[in-house]
Write a protein that binds this DNA or RNA. Structure first.
Lengths: 345, 345
DNA sequence: TTGTAGGCGTTATCAT
DNA sequence: ATGATAACGCCTACAA
């Protein structure tokens, strides 16, 4: 049988109340002498408080839920690490939940986490979060934050990187290298982040007086295979372009693969860009020019905000926007006049 | 205030005992009629049992701990996914713990998980697990399994892939391609898996009558950087070799990078092999010939075994060995006679 | 400074 | 088929 607070109390000839005060580091309610004695006995008997029992009365479990689409997506491990390290440093553990962007799974996890009385949850989803689902958490008065993605018309804090700006910058970089016909492989239609990035793409084009052509854009799902099919579709379209910007690195990898197979040189013939700066982007040939997101920090800050919320502290603003930055590697070439001519109407 | 079993009981004019029986799907202790009535009220009042309170009496929490070195290592996400999917399918959630192979962190996590009364833990570590630490779990009578790595002289179940055999096969593949001078970039000295793989390397050499030369081996830490430094060291050694086999893909990526910088062609000049078949190995140039481990299954089966243990079921044997298999891609070339001659003494 | 006792929300053992 | 009630292990007023 496990040794309980009762055993310690008996052994030390004090009440369990006193023991409780001591293990909770209260600064009143016992003499220094009894404190030492009790502590010694606790050590001798290897007593450790039962978190469950404690949780039942305090309503705190010291665990937070971490909901994301798929840990297998190379974007997430580093984010998760940021969350876990931070949570841990504050005495929390994390329950990891993979939803595959499936609303049903999300809902189920919400309920489970609520029933398990987690102290808070960090939520990332590409799917639009329904109010009805949010209610599961809010009714349970469980603090939560949105990470990476966000939901409109809500007051829930969210931490993300400025996707529109990131995409804006990399497209501008392309333009400054002489590119004018720029294809775009986007994320899914309806995905909030995908929309933001596309907005950055459009904005950059517009500012340079380049017309946005629907025919030059394709919609993938952030996975390698969709990068492949989008690139193939682009090639077969007969449209002319000197560069293709992808909404994430994985799709860029797929696009790269297609061009390699077709014997089209990157970046000499066509330039390609990624987004996220996942490790993969450093080992493709050529290495991907991409936009770097502070992934670890994204997780870290999300955890910090959540913990503040849990502690009832104020947070400065609902939105925390981290800044992305351009990482120039080898997948973009200057568009020379010669090529320019040959590809003009 | 949350609605409790008491509220339901009152509303339904029954005792909490009856409600309890109903929510736990007992097959006695209530009439069909009251069952329906209670269930209806439960739904109306949106009642959900408090897992904490339940856990306090049942001693079950439906959560399992998952301890691994670093989720950021691309080998793990898929394993974790296998664990999570399986756990979830059986009604369990997972608490993720990153240890960085730090014994102190491991010990701390052991204690936390024990205090949180997790139902079991899956443990992966490169560090030698001390008996004293194991005791934390065994004393708490918490079932656990070893995943990927194992500990000698213990009776703890472990699930792993046959590292010795995997390495044996890939080295044989090299030999069958005419390679005789084969360098080896190993994992850390003392790491159990590293030892197993090295054993496979030695065995293959021996069977083909090739002498094992300490001068041809280096020890890294499974990370890209160590692959780089090991490869550099190998190049500077002046030793002659036509192939280098790496104990994992990440180090192979590092090695590849060094050769690329030096203008040495892979596989024409030197062949390289990886191990693990992490996604990265498909996008290097050339693509890595490597050994594939069933990563998802590793996680899945580990979870299944653990759950059996939790349920008090018998498991067939202490050791479950999954089979690795050779994946031939483009980083190994036939060693032609010409090269052979030039590199012979 | 210390102890008593109630309560947290369940499950489970007895009765009835 | 039901209902009281005692745990489960801890925290926390409230007393002493």
């Amino acid at each position: 049988m496990e040794v309980t607070i009762k055993d310690i109390a008996k052994q030390a000839n004090v009440s369990i109340a006193t023991v409780s005060r001591i293990i909770n580091n209260k600064d009143e309610g016992f003499s220094l002498e009894t404190k030492d004695r009790v502590k010694k006995i606790i050590k001798e008997m290897d007593y450790h408080p039962n978190s469950i029992a404690r949780g039942l009365v305090t309503k705190k479990t010291s665990v937070i839920g971490l909901i994301l689409p798929d840990i297998t997506n190379p974007f997430f491990p580093e984010v998760v690490r940021g969350v876990e390290d931070t949570a841990n440093a504050h005495g929390y553990n994390i329950i990891l939940c993979n939803t595959d962007d499936d609303e049903k799974k999300e809902k189920t996890y919400f309920k489970i986490l609520r029933d398990k009385y987690v102290d808070g949850v960090i939520y990332t989803s590409a799917a639009a979060l329904k109010d009805k689902n949010i209610k599961i958490l809010t009714d349970g008065e469980i603090p939560f934050v949105l990470m990476d993605r966000y939901i409109e018309n809500q007051t829930i804090p969210y931490i993300h990187t400025d996707s529109e700006r990131g995409m804006y910058e990399i497209v501008n970089y392309l333009i400054s290298n002489g590119h004018k016909k720029i294809s775009y492989i986007s994320g899914p239609v309806g995905d909030v982040v995908a929309e933001q990035r596309k907005r950055g793409y459009k904005k950059a084009l517009k500012e340079s007086g380049i017309e946005y052509k629907e025919l030059l854009v394709r919609h993938g799902n952030y996975k390698v295979n969709s990068g492949i099919s989008c690139m193939e579709s682009l090639m077969e379209s007969g449209e002319n372009f000197s560069a293709v910007v992808c909404a994430n690195d994985l799709m860029a990898v797929g696009a790269l693969e297609v061009l390699k197979v077709k014997g089209i040189r990157v970046p000499e013939d066509i330039s390609i860009t990624g987004y996220d700066d996942v490790f993969l982007s450093q080992i493709t040939t050529p290495k991907l020019t991409t936009i770097s997101q502070p992934k670890y920090d994204l997780g870290k800050i999300s955890a910090e905000i959540l913990i503040k919320l849990i502690n009832g502290e104020d947070i400065d603003s609902r939105e925390i926007k981290l800044e992305p930055h351009l990482v120039i590697r080898g997948s973009v070439a200057k568009r020379s006049e010669v090529h320019e001519d040959s590809s003009n109407r």
